[in-house]
Design a protein around this nucleic acid. Structure first.
Length: 998
RNA sequence: GGCCAGGUGGCGAAAUAGGCAGACGCACGGGACUUAAAAUCCCGGGCCCCUAAAGGGGCGUACGGGUUCGAUUCCCGUCCUGGCUACCA
């Protein structure tokens, strides 16, 4: 009983916090004096409640935020710290396919497990704000936000002043404000049998931020759904690693590309790590360059070469081009390319169309047609994986066609090759083998000429050796007619101007980011609040109607059979006709959209709902949004650095443009915790003869008379180790225990002579079920308690760093808590009573001093999120106090307050034992007296030529002269200075003294 | 291949406006308590050399250079590890 009993203490205080609603945040926006309290919104990335329960990686970030929140409450802040569940997703549905259990049931069970585990760790969440993305009350508003996006178009030219006073361009605006082109207004766009209203609706549908597209998508048969580009890695599904095929399907897309510029540029104002910002910018992949038109040569038969050189080229072209000017139909007689290096136009020696390019058929000559068709067929069969595998070998086929280089009139051959992607830029490139790596490889492979047009800038140290390597640096133009001698930068801006004046090209911006494929074919996702109109025969007309806000949420239909359809037909298409069809008030027949939303949808806006999770009239009360947003601190894994954070920022910006939220960015400060790796396994053996690493699971351990022998498939492979009692290492040699004692030292990497296997030390790796190295938080809490788990995860190392688990480390912090306990509790008494060493008198200066040092250090460290060093400072305090005969109660009290954010349960218990009642959660955070941090005397190292030769104790405020004087009388210093000439003395008062001698 | 982050004892790590390298913890060794063990408490420790010991000397923050009175910290080059990204024109 009087010993530190984590289990009893933790159960008691968790009960106390729950009964007293200790961490409930007031549901109203504070007014009057309360409004003067600063607010702090601290958010964890909410977990997907998987069937396997909490992983030790989860509490890492959650403990960090919990420390910040508990600290902030004591600092007098109004804290919002919620938790919820990202609960839609495939696993529950896959489970339903296997067992017939409804996904909702599985989800609810998993949530219950997660919730129990989180409560067991004593996090100070306001559980009244709990939400799950699968709650109809929640996804009602997910559907509502979708309708907002559906109702919005992007006006790229709209100029407006942001809330920060900065002028911005481009804004999402209501679809009703979309300007109509002249032919619609004049009625000339009217097709036979179609009303003008429908023509307008079709035009609007094309411009919505949520639109239906027929483009090729990634269909994953194994998962029974299409996947976003972002969900595919090396041509396989991110989830499960299943193959993916590309096929054209009608799918919902969100026009995230419209926001690409703002998503990139508005990162600047955020307090995120550079690497995350970099990854987001990289993903958006903005590049600037030019689009240039190459006219297709009139006839392949005409051998008449256009005059070479730059003479009047632009004039010739002006005459040739049609009067429509540059922005014209790219499928006519020009090949439009995108390039970031318009300065290399004179170096174009061929062009490449992607195999899917619409001009391929038109340009291909009869002689080449069969070869071209064969190449197209082959590349369409290639999965993305094959394309990556063959990345080194360039392939392609000549079409037989030629195009005219607009700057010099040269005829250049047009090829097709799958290294040019239809989905980026214009799907066609001008190839400059001299100055582009890929073009260089291709030209070398097919014997295409290489023309140098950029020379290294004088003095740059670069050389251009085009026989053997490509030159991609910037430099000075050569072989470029009148542009010769211009630097790359000057050339770029001049040529862009000239091209655009001549109507041959224009400056252009391209993004790597593609529009977001937003539909899935699964059951367990939000249904779309959209209906498709049907004509009298029951065929879709292509026109859509949105559900009214009042009719939300669109609930899932009841289904007993969760087997995928095996085709791209969505699961919801198997619903009953009652769910699928209705006749609208105007008599039009409607069919429901049967796709569902991807898992990302719910997580795009949950941080908003936490502020106001019971609101049935609106997704969030604007006053609450204004008060709580932005999230002040957002902590989660780096795996969400790109997708989740990009998607939710996009949604937030749409909501902002439409006036539903007051700021353009949701997450002010973002921190990514580093992954916790599995404990390195010391039992691994490599067969000396074959070099094969043996599966530790197949190695049997047999202990005879203190010697551990290992057997693998009937063969003795090694003896010794796992436990440290029979293995030890000193420097580069290992020693093994055998019957004679410690064996002779053996060089590292070898093993005991008689053993046909050598020792292999395995590195720490990701925790995974297959490796069997998953640590279950339940076990840790059971053995050591929640406070120890929390403390250990914070003590392991810097929050953002990847670090391996070591169960011994938990033991260490557990011992620390035991020491703290015994510092003040009499552990031989029957009940929890203060130890006799604790006295309530005025503290001696040394106890006071270390207390105030600790207060400062811990406070600063929490502010920096440097929890590992904060804990080590508290350990130092404890070590010091353990050695004190009497410990002053007031000192211990202040210390307990410092400890409480880290180890709240034991702290509450000790606070109570120290004579307080109730919780310490809102006690004022200790402050320190700077006077007490100043020592009277300091020890200063004395260096001779940079080497420490002595240490002197001097008054803390000694100046340079008195430092030197004190050092010169020191015996060791004198000895070292003897017979030498002091050339120079460097004195840093309070820190160091250095004699430079000869 | 490109970009980013990092390389410090047996291990996790600490210390950078350039100033005593290795705090704190683990593991290890020695001791105390105990019939014994566990628990707890105390002491030790980067490596190498000299010394019986006290003590002293040398080398040390991946490697090679540089700047400086002084470099784990700044600069240049090399090697290695982790992460992201991979034909984005």
């Amino acid at each position: 009983m009087p010993r530190y009993d984590a289990k009893r203490i933790e159960a008691h205080w968790q009960q106390y916090w729950e009964t007293n609603q200790t961490f409930r945040t007031k549901d109203t926006v504070p007014t009057g004096d309360a409004a003067k309290k600063p607010k702090l919104y601290v958010l964890d990335m909410f977990p997907y409640p998987s069937g396997s329960g909490l992983h030790v990686g989860h509490p890492e970030g959650y403990t960090a935020t919990d420390i910040v929140c508990r600290y902030a409450r004591m600092k007098g802040k109004n804290v919002l710290h919620p938790m919820g569940w990202d609960a839609f997703g495939l696993p529950a549905e896959e489970h339903a396919v296997k067992t017939g259990t409804h996904p909702r049931e599985t989800t609810e069970q998993n949530i219950a497990t997660f919730k129990r585990q989180l409560k067991m760790l004593g996090f100070s969440y306001d559980w009244t704000r709990e939400l799950a993305t699968t709650d109809p009350d929640y996804y009602r508003w997910t559907q509502w936000i979708f309708l907002q996006i559906f109702d919005t178009w992007y006006d790229a030219d709209f100029v407006w002043i942001g809330p920060d006073g900065v002028e911005r361009k481009g804004k999402g605006r209501p679809i009703s404000e979309l300007p109509m082109p002249g032919d619609i207004l004049s009625g000339t766009a009217l097709a036979a049998g179609e009303s003008i209203e429908n023509v307008i609706r079709r035009y609007q549908d094309k411009h919505r931020l949520a639109y239906v597209s027929d483009a090729p998508v990634n269909w994953c048969p194994a998962l029974g759904t299409v996947l976003a580009n972002e969900e595919i890695i090396d041509g396989k599904s991110e989830r499960g690693g299943h193959p993916v095929v590309r096929m054209p399907l009608k799918q919902w897309m969100l026009r995230i590309t419209a926001y690409a510029d703002r998503l990139a540029s508005e990162l600047d104002e955020l307090d995120w790590s550079d690497s995350i910002k970099f990854m987001q910018r990289n993903w958006i992949g903005r590049s600037t360059g030019a689009e240039v038109d190459f006219r297709i040569a009139e006839s392949q038969a005409s051998g008449g070469r256009q005059p070479s050189g730059t003479t009047a080229v632009f004039d010739i072209w002006k005459a040739l081009r049609q009067s429509t000017g540059f922005p014209r139909d790219p499928e006519s007689d020009v090949i439009r390319v995108y390039t970031t290096r318009p300065d290399t136009l004179f170096g174009v020696t061929y062009m490449v169309l992607s195999p899917e390019h619409p001009l391929v058929q038109k340009i291909t000559t009869d002689a080449q047609r069969s070869a071209v068709d064969e190449y197209i067929r082959k590349s369409s069969l290639k999965s993305d994986l094959d394309r990556t595998d063959l990345a080194k070998e360039k392939t392609g086929v000549f079409t037989g066609g030629y195009a005219i280089n607009p700057v010099n009139g040269e005829r250049v051959p047009v090829w097709i090759a799958d290294y040019v992607l239809i989905s980026y830029g214009t799907g066609a490139i001008m190839a400059v083998p001299a100055h582009d790596e890929r073009d260089y490889e291709f030209a070398k492979a097919f014997g295409i000429p290489i023309t140098q047009v950029v020379a290294p800038a004088p003095g740059s140290g670069h050389i251009a050796d085009l026989e053997n390597s490509v030159f991609t640096e910037t430099g000075v133009a050569v072989n470029s007619g009148k542009y010769d001698g211009l630097t790359t930068a000057d050339f770029k801006s001049q040529i862009s101007n000239h091209l655009s004046q001549a109507g041959l090209g224009k400056e252009a911006v391209n993004y790597r980011l593609r529009d977001w494929l937003f539909s899935r074919q699964r059951y367990w996702g939000e249904p779309f609040p959209i209906w498709h109109e049907l004509d009298a025969d029951g065929h879709p007309t292509g026109l859509m109607r949105a559900d009214t806000v009042e009719s939300l949420p669109v609930l899932h239909p009841h289904m007993d059979d969760f087997k995928p359809t095996g085709t791209p037909e969505p699961m919801l298409a198997k619903a009953t006709p009652e769910w699928l069809f209705k006749t609208d008030t105007d008599g039009v027949k409607l069919k429901r959209e049967t796709n569902s939303m991807p898992q990302w949808a719910g997580s795009c806006w949950y941080y908003l709902r936490f502020c106001d999770n019971k609101n049935s009239a609106s997704f969030i009360d604007p006053a609450k949004e204004k008060y709580w947003l932005p999230v002040d601190l957002y902590i989660g894994g780096a795996e969400h650095a790109v997708l989740h954070l990009l998607y939710s920022r996009f949604w937030h910006k749409v909501l902002f443009d439409r006036g539903h939220v007051s700021r353009p960015e949701p997450f002010q400060k973002l921190v990514n915790q580093g992954m916790i790796l599995g404990e390195p396994d010391h039992t691994a053996f490599e067969d000396i003869e074959t070099g094969i690493v043996l599966d530790p699971k197949l190695v049997t351990r047999l202990e005879i008379e203190g010697i551990v022998n290992y057997w693998h498939e009937g063969k003795k492979v090694a003896k010794a180790t796992r436990s440290d009692s029979d293995y030890r290492r000193q420097g580069d040699v290992a020693e093994f225990w055998n019957s004679e004692g410690w064996d002779q030292t053996v060089p590292k990497g070898e093993f005991i002579k008689s053993c046909p296997a050598k020792w292999v030390e395995s590195a720490a790796t990701k925790m995974s079920k297959s490796r069997g190295n998953v640590i279950n938080p339940d076990d840790v809490v059971n053995d050591y308690g929640a406070d120890s788990l929390r403390l250990y995860e914070m003590f392991m190392g810097p929050l953002e760093q990847v670090k391996p688990w070591q169960m011994n480390g938990v033991e260490g912090v557990y011992r620390f808590l035991g020491r703290v306990w015994r510092l003040m509790i009499d552990d031989r008494a029957e009940s929890v009573i203060l130890s006799a060493a604790v006295v309530d008198t005025a503290p001696p200066v040394d106890q006071l001093r270390i207390l105030h040092k600790t207060i400062k250090a811990v406070t600063d460290d929490i502010d920096r999120l440097a929890f590992n060093t904060a804990i080590s400072r508290m350990m130092e305090f404890t070590n010091f106090m353990s050695g004190q005969e009497t410990r002053i109660k007031s000192v211990l009290e202040q210390f307990i307050l410092l400890l409480s954010p880290f180890a709240p349960h034991i702290s509450e218990e000790l606070w109570l034992a120290l004579g307080h009642s109730g919780t310490l959660a809102y006690e004022p955070w200790p402050s320190y007296d700077p006077q007490l941090l100043v020592e009277d005397t300091v020890e200063v190292p004395v260096q001779i030529n940079g080497k420490v030769r002595a240490k002197i104790i001097v008054p803390a405020n000694s100046d340079a002269a008195s430092l030197e004087a004190a050092a010169r009388v020191d015996e060791a210093v004198q000895k070292n200075l003897d017979g030498k000439t002091v050339v120079k003395v460097v004195a840093v008062p309070g820190r160091l003294l250095n004699f430079v001698v000869k």
